[in-house]
Design a protein around this nucleic acid. Structure first.
Length: 156
DNA sequence: GCCAACGTTGGC
DNA sequence: GCCAACGTTGGC
């Protein structure tokens, strides 16, 4: 059996929420403009990998849902689109620089697992999301942490 | 709205 | 290659 890879992506719910993903069923995860996050998508994410969806900037912030990778990394065309908020003048058709994957909706968690709750949980110590100052919008998450968050969401 | 932390840019 | 200035992220 192949090593299981699990991920976490952040999104601002006012920009694109888990409800939007549920409605769309699948979407291209465009607009990632950080090299490390891009590399995780490009080099790590494979079709079928499960992804926790985190709402940042919300009140409160926390993990709200589950998605699945349904297309592996390909060029993010929004970088070439002058009208896009994600336009990057350094990107060219020959070297688009930025990549995206497609994600499909799996489920909303039975309840949100808040950032405060995760910070307080000894079982999640060391999780990248909880490290101070970390701003990655796409990151790997230890499968044990991934499973633990899903378990928490099933508890009242 | 504030501000700490971080990544990027650009002058030198 | 250094590093200060700047812009962004994101919790609070």
């Amino acid at each position: 059996m192949a090593t299981r890879r699990t991920w976490l992506v952040k999104t601002e719910p006012g920009s694109y929420s888990i409800d939007d993903l549920e409605r769309d069923r699948r979407t291209c995860w465009d607009g990632v403009r950080n090299y490390q996050a891009r590399n995780f998508m490009r080099d790590g994410m494979r079709v079928g990998d499960l992804v926790l969806v985190y709402h940042s900037g919300g009140d409160p912030p926390g993990v709200v849902g589950l998605a699945r990778v349904c297309r592996e990394a390909y060029p993010d065309a929004s970088a070439l689109d002058r009208r896009s908020e994600y336009f990057d003048p350094k990107a060219t058709a020959h070297d688009p620089i930025w990549m995206m994957v497609d994600l499909e909706f799996v489920e909303k968690l039975p309840r949100m697992v808040t950032l405060a709750e995760m910070k307080a949980d000894a079982a999640l110590r060391g999780m990248t999301l909880l490290q101070r100052g970390q701003r990655l919008s796409v990151m790997p998450i230890d499968p044990a942490h991934f499973d633990h968050i899903r378990r928490l969401s099933r508890r009242a």
